[in-house]
């Protein structure tokens, strides 16, 4: 479905330095039972965020009011495991528009691009710089510009470029998804299918 256009995002950052955060942590399987797409944000990082009685765990970053923002700064190999798009729906629904990491799992990254959350891959060194800056000052702002493909730490001006393929970039900028594109190709696809039988 169509999503908000992405151009320049300037925001404070929520840091989550854990490595290998899998989609079962982002949204545990028992919360995948809805037949609609809304409301998953409430269960984002459920078991890290709440104890068994449903009380917020104080030491988890989403329960720490010092940190907020539309950018999630994540550790290495973020989003591994299940193909559940619910993980990205949960991030989106919670209010994240961008995830920054030095390494993403494949399917997760694809899912992000399909529903309008921008995955930004940076070098491990720059990730360290960002983590340190946010730790020193939680009000630190980061700017993500999809057009110039640049991510900048505003307090120091340090920046890095990131990759995104041109097709996906246009989609993100316009809030389009692949289905719009594919539906326009229906005749070509039909021809192709006939040739395969």
């Amino acid at each position: 479905m169509a999503y908000d256009k992405f151009n320049v995002l300037t925001s404070t950052v929520v840091p989550l330095p854990n490595e290998n955060v899998d989609t079962d942590q982002i949204i545990p399987a028992r919360f995948l039972k809805a037949t609609e797409r809304e409301g998953f944000g409430d269960n984002l990082f459920r078991d890290w965020r709440y104890d068994v009685e449903g009380n917020p765990k104080k030491d988890f970053v989403l329960n720490d009011s010092t940190y907020s923002g539309k950018i999630l700064l994540a550790g290495r190999n973020f989003g591994s495991g299940s193909s559940r798009e619910h993980a990205v729906w949960a991030l989106y629904d919670y209010g994240f528009r961008c995830v920054v990491s030095s390494f993403f799992a494949d399917i997760f990254k694809n899912n992000c691009l399909n529903i309008g959350v921008l995955p930004v891959t940076i070098s491990p060194e720059f990730a360290d710089v960002l983590f340190a800056a946010v730790e020193a000052d939680p009000r630190t702002e980061v700017e993500v510009d999809i057009d110039t493909q640049k991510i900048t730490l505003l307090s120091t001006g340090q920046s890095e470029s990131f990759d995104i393929n041109a097709y996906k970039k246009e989609n993100m900028k316009n809030g389009f998804d692949d289905i719009d594109y594919l539906l326009n190709l229906k005749e070509e696809i039909e021809e192709f299918e006939k040739g395969r039988k």
Binding site: S83, E85, N114, I179, L182, I189, E193
Partner: peptide, 14 residues
């Protein structure tokens, strides 16, 4: 494996 948006794509366009 694919995400749900892609499930939709396959259903609609194969």
């Amino acid at each position: 494996g694919i995400g749900t948006s892609e499930v939709e794509m396959v259903l609609a366009t194969q």
